[in-house]
Amino acid sequence: MAQLMHRVVLPVTFGLAVLVVWQGVIEAGMVSKLVLTGPVQIVTALITEAPTLLSNGLITLTEAVSGFVLGSLAGLATAALFIRFGALQRAVFPLTILMEAVPVVAILPVLMLWMGNGMAPKIFIAAFLSFFPMLVNAYRGFSNVDADVQELMLSYSASPEQLFWKVRLPAALPFMFTALKLSACSSIVSALVAEWLASDQGLGYLIISYGQGYRVADVWAAATLACLLALAFYGITAAGEKWALSRRTR
């Protein structure tokens, strides 16, 4: 009972209080309506603009999820190659860490020159950003096998393939979910940001065009929807993790 109080009542009360004070500040006219809007107006905008918001949100989501899936699969495959061929890993792995430092999203203007301003460059960016977390984490997971277990497999004269499928892959599962959770967030963000630069569709585009029109409530509505989408995507990934690893953690 006390736990429920602490874990639910306090944060919910605080959240409601913030919303009420916020609305109060707006209603009292303490801030210009051109600059800030209230929660009621945002919800109203979410409802009235729903068709536009949802159709554009779907586009952003498609870009993010496609990139997420492609990038994660490529990262996983590369990590498996690295485990199989040690020399490849030694040569390329430090480079991949370097690549992570490159502001990949900033290359977007170049990508648009290459791929046009449709969905392709956005998917590419989302995939690129999903690739490295999966590569690094999956590799770490594949390498995370107990020396004892490896010895045991060796004593059974297991082939490298058997070691991979029976030991390394399951051992890497928690690490892979760490990467997926990271990528779930970053793929949405990168799709949104990519739409800023050149696009005539998607939530990112919508946010910018509302902003330029000073449609304050609509900007908030679109940004809120973007947050909800990201939260849902992350939540689904986290739920998948919980389901897949439920038997392992006590």
Binding site: V193, I207, A223, A226, C227, L231, Y234
Partner: peptide
């Protein structure tokens, strides 16, 4: 999990 950067506008 939030793309806080979308609040830039």
């Amino acid at each position: 999990a939030l793309p806080l950067i979308v609040f830039t506008p």
